[in-house]
Amino acid sequence: MELEVATVASGWHDVLSVFSRGEPARVATRHGICFDIPGLTVWLRNPADLTPPQGYLYPELIKDYRDRIFGEQRESSLLYQRLRRWVAADGSPIDQFEQATEMLRQDEHSRSAVFSMWRPEEDLGGRFPVSPVGGALRIVGDDLVLFLTARSVDVWVGFVPELLTFAQLASDAALALGLRGSRICYHSWSMHLYEVDFLTYLAGAR
């Protein structure tokens, strides 16, 4: 399933509406019953608009997630370590995102500006495996496109902070490359909404 949205603010509501009009799978997990849409792809047309959605209940999580990439939590953030300080075989750190951006600066037609955040020796069977698992950068026309693949995302809680943070990354990279703008192609293997939150959403939508 594919969905195109204008901004994170409007797109969150668009994604939520898919759960009420579609037929998501009902899954029992260790965290409770949830509704799951496997393989949902969301195209974000305007990542530069970082306005949070109206009605999103966890604004503190937006700050928390941003701090993991841009702020004071970087040193302890697994996400930051994987993306900006990947440990190579020789022990040296690799800033994958910076190298991917630089690759496009050298060759705007490159299809190899790829980054990974999944370490199988740590994440396969891990208690809190990382998500997103990886992505890529491409220049398409006059825009930078950030392709991001998520292992799993809770639409009610984690989707907004995650998308807003990577939206800023994409916007900053586009500016650094002198491009007109950016877009995001966000693909999740498990886009889910827990039953209790689904009921809260339905009550508020009436």
Rank of each mutant, 00 (worst) to 15 (best):
L3F: 11
A6I: 02
T7M: 06
T7H: 09
V8P: 03
A9S: 15
W12A: 07
D14F: 00
V15D: 12
S20C: 06
G22F: 09
G22P: 09
G22N: 08
P24D: 05
A25W: 07
G32N: 04
G32E: 09
C34S: 03
L40Y: 03
V42H: 04
N46V: 08
D49R: 08
D49Y: 13
P52M: 02
L57P: 08
L57G: 01
Y58R: 10
Y58P: 00
P59S: 02
L61I: 01
L61A: 07
R66Q: 13
I69L: 15
I69V: 14
F70M: 05
R74P: 02
R74F: 01
E75I: 02
Q81N: 13
R84D: 02
A88E: 13
S92A: 14
S92C: 08
I94P: 08
E98A: 15
M103N: 06
M103T: 13
Q106H: 08
Q106G: 01
E108I: 04
H109K: 13
S110H: 11
V114S: 00
E121G: 02
E121Y: 02
E122V: 14
E122A: 14
L124R: 12
R127I: 10
V130Y: 01
V133Y: 00
V133W: 00
V133K: 00
G134E: 02
G135T: 07
A136Y: 14
R138F: 03
I139D: 09
V140H: 06
G141C: 10
D142Y: 01
D142S: 09
D142R: 10
D143Q: 08
D143C: 05
D143S: 10
V145A: 00
F147I: 02
A150M: 14
R151A: 08
S152T: 15
V153Y: 00
V153L: 03
D154N: 15
V160L: 03
E162A: 11
L164Q: 11
L164K: 12
T165R: 04
Q168L: 14
Q168G: 05
A170E: 07
S171C: 04
S171F: 01
D172C: 08
A173N: 11
A174R: 01
A176W: 05
L177H: 11
G178Y: 12
L179Y: 05
S182E: 12
R183I: 01
Y186H: 15
W189F: 14
M191L: 15
H192G: 03
H192Q: 10
H192W: 10
Y194S: 07
D197N: 09
D197Y: 01
T200H: 04
G204C: 06
R206C: 03
